[in-house]
Amino acid sequence: MRLNLVLLLLLLGLSVISLRFGEAPLSLSEVVGGLLGTGSETHQLIVQQIRLPRVLLAWLIGLSLGASGAALQGLLRNPLAEPGLLGISSSAGLGAVLALYFGVTAFSLWALPAVAMLFALLATLLLYALTQAGANNLTLILAGVALSSLAGALTSLALNLAPNPADVQDIVLWLLGSISDRSFEEVRLCLPFVLAGLALLLLCAPALDVLALGEAEASSLGIDLARLRGLIIAGSALSVGATVAVSGAIGFVGLVVPHLLRPFVAYRPGRLLLSSALGGAVLVLAADIALRLIGTPRELMLGVVTALVGAPFFLGLVLRSRRDML
């Protein structure tokens, strides 16, 4: 409980910092004025229309990735599970690209997240079927890599065949994962699905604790495994699919955060869920602030930053789990 409070305070503090920094740095009172609508019109515009959506999206993406990462690791009983690594994010990305490519978005604004979520769902179901067929950790990760590659290849194919080069550049940049230049429209588009997905995932907390004993013993203690799998698959697909649809794929958050926080929740998979969600939001927000503060000639993409930090971390984790197995 104290950990969650600390994470929440950290999240609020970072949110204020994120609202302050940008092309025109604002003071704390200017931010508050902009938020409450008592400040100057420019400040209101900057804070409410430009920076607030960005902060909220960082929250939603981090919450989704952190919670799904922790839930998938608990369900698959595998510390290397993560939406990005397992190809769930890239499948959602493929869905989004296909929706854009075939102009499905013309029918309804909701078509984009819907197709992304559908693809995320299919990827999660496929991976789950694999684990049921008795796949070990290595097979699962390899299947995830294969799934990511396939989704990536199909995405490239779509781009390759795209008639308009300008569209291609837009889509490629979008795929790298970013939350700059987003508006409240994007927040509204993913908010309901993220909240629904998070609710489903958090419902699983007690069952995930018991699942530490293995599926047979958990089932003998009254855990409904089919319901648990359904909740986690649907929850991850909803929340990750919806955020990928508005921000592109942002990797490794779901891997790094549960791993870092696990010792603080006594390694209990159920207690990890909420903390990991909050920790994910802290990490995404911090990364988004960092890439603005670094001040590269062209702003770095959020997905690039998380991958730069996350990939070496993943490598270290693999080496360590290899050593543990030997």
Binding site: R77, L211, A212, A216, R262, Y267, R268, P269
Partner: peptide, 8 residues
């Protein structure tokens, strides 16, 4: 042996 995480 089936305990997955290093819980106490």
């Amino acid at each position: 042996d089936a305990v997955q995480w290093p819980i106490s």
